[in-house]
Nucleic acid binder design. Structure first.
Lengths: 156, 156
DNA sequence: GAAACCTGGACATCTAATATCCGGGATGTG
DNA sequence: CACATCCCGGATATTAGATGTCCAGGTTTC
């Protein structure tokens, strides 16, 4: 089971955008981490579609956070890039077993499906309870000059 | 992000094995759910390697649970099939950023990595706290004759 | 108008999951 | 012992998804 790399990229980019404030071109973000610009751009576009980022075309344009860092949870970013589907997907194989209804959807009644879903909910709860502002605060506690260095590297 | 289908198959099979008690051939389990026998067999083999199942060759052989259902957690099954690696993998892109150490491993210090890892721990905790016996008890509560029907369909 | 920048789609590539097949070994039965 | 049953593990397709590239448009600033 593996999460797309875009999540890691997007989270780092969002933290940086939170510190810069002004729009940052996607190419500059890509250069900052030595990432493929065109591909990173796709992830940023997904953040825009999810309402997490704003995009500004033209010179002096780029991407910026659309909300306060405290109003963007890690879950928001994960869902924006990975979609809302659960990692465990019940395919209702009980319907193929003797006595089962092949047309029924067991995802809401199968005890296995419910257990897996419940565990995944715990994961989502943790992610939802943690905002970009929380993470940023942790970074600053460990490296107080991080915001300033990011601004120096990325600000126009 | 998606979990392999083998996890669902294996969990259903393990529940059945818990109810049957005697060894059940992989082909019979596959027929029970109309699954590809050769492929399901690979998942069962992984359960054997993980010490969750025993395999008995020869006539009257098959697979059976190697431990009490109460001693097999959902996490055991997930790890047996998906491996111990985390879904979120820190690739230390901070090392490529200005001021970063390209050779360093940031997975233990990067605040983003730590947050993602912490959320995943919550998921694993839930899975570890739930055993096959717990799930089986839920099934019986909802369909008291399930164990008997499974035995009738799968027992030798 | 030109340059900077985002948008969205089409396309190529690579990896992992899914699936099949076969030769081999172990075990119980007659 | 001979045979049927069944697991083991490697080699090999097939497919879907993730990764990555490219280009023909827009929009905005200067």
């Amino acid at each position: 089971m593996r999460m797309g790399q875009g999540v890691e990229w997007a989270l780092h980019c969002c933290l940086n955008l939170a510190w810069v404030g002004a729009p940052v071109p996607g190419a500059r973000l890509a250069g900052h981490y030595d990432l493929p610009a065109a591909y990173l751009n796709k992830q940023l576009q997904a953040l825009v579609r999810a309402g997490i980022c704003d995009s500004v075309p033209g010179p002096r344009g780029g991407f910026r956070l659309a909300r306060e860092p405290g109003a963007v949870s890690l879950l928001d970013v994960v869902v924006a890039l990975e979609g809302p589907e659960e990692a465990f997907r019940c395919t209702s194989i009980l319907g193929a077993a003797p006595g089962g209804d092949p047309a029924a959807d067991y995802s809401g009644s199968c005890a296995i499906s419910l257990s897996m879903r419940s565990a995944e909910l715990a994961w989502r709860r943790e992610l939802a309870a943690r905002s970009l502002a929380d993470v940023a605060a942790d970074v600053v506690r460990h490296a107080p000059d991080a915001p300033q260095r990011v601004r120096a590297a990325l600000a126009p």
